[in-house]
């Protein structure tokens, strides 16, 4: 298949193919370690004229894929602007083992600051001895929840509420420490921002 005009071998998903070709593409909800989630929409590319999420589109069957088309870049930037508007705290920056992923995504797409008004949560949970959770950096990519539910099969955290009320939570009125969380840290390892970050 042609990727940005260059012939490459199609392997796995479009995202796999793109990354294998050494091309940077944000993928804030796709972790090597986790199944496809498809929530963050930051890996949008133009495939045979359609805008698709690279993570969930099989590369086989795609003739031409562009990560750098004007439209794909513009829409990705729009998504990243909406994403950035979820992060209000200084915690939006570094601190987690994977927070470079979101920082690089922003750096490469130059979202216009303040394009959308902030709409972030403020809750913080410092109860676990090993890590803390900060809603003001959370982008609801669901990696943490997927790691907890589908990798470790613990299910200590979930996303409660629908639409714009959705938030990551260890249950109703329960802190991480009080929940069934076993502190395995897979959520921290999965977080692409610093919403979940190790202490100390």
């Amino acid at each position: 298949m042609k990727l940005n005009g260059v012939s490459v071998e199609a392997t796995g998903s479009l995202l796999d193919t793109v990354l294998a070709a050494g091309i940077a593409l944000p993928h804030l909800c796709k972790d090597d370690n986790l199944p496809v989630i498809g929530a963050c929409r930051t890996c949008l590319v133009e495939a045979d004229g359609r805008i698709v999420a690279a993570c969930s589109t099989p590369a086989a069957g795609v003739q031409e894929c562009a990560t750098d088309s004007e439209r794909a870049v513009r829409i990705r930037r729009g998504v990243l602007e909406l994403t950035a508007a979820m992060q209000s705290g200084p915690a939006g920056a570094a601190g987690g083992p994977r927070s470079a992923e979101s920082l690089e995504a922003y750096a490469s797409h130059a979202p216009r600051p303040g394009q959308y008004g902030l709409r972030s949560g403020t809750h913080a949970d410092l109860s676990n001895p090993f890590f803390s959770f900060h809603e003001d950096a959370c982008i609801l990519c669901a990696r943490c929840v997927t790691a907890c539910q589908e990798l470790q099969h613990i299910g200590a955290i979930g996303i409660a509420g629908r639409g714009h009320t959705a938030r990551v939570t260890p249950g109703a009125g329960v802190s991480f420490r009080e929940s069934i969380c076993t502190s395995c840290g897979s959520c921290v390892a999965a977080c692409p921002t610093s919403a979940l970050r190790p202490k100390g």
């Binding site: 929530a39 669901a142 996303i159 509420g161």
Partner: peptide, 13 residues
């Protein structure tokens, strides 16, 4: 909006 994906959850409001 169910709240799963960013464009719909953040965009529609």
């Amino acid at each position: 909006s169910c709240g799963k994906c960013t464009p719909c959850r953040e965009g529609t409001p």
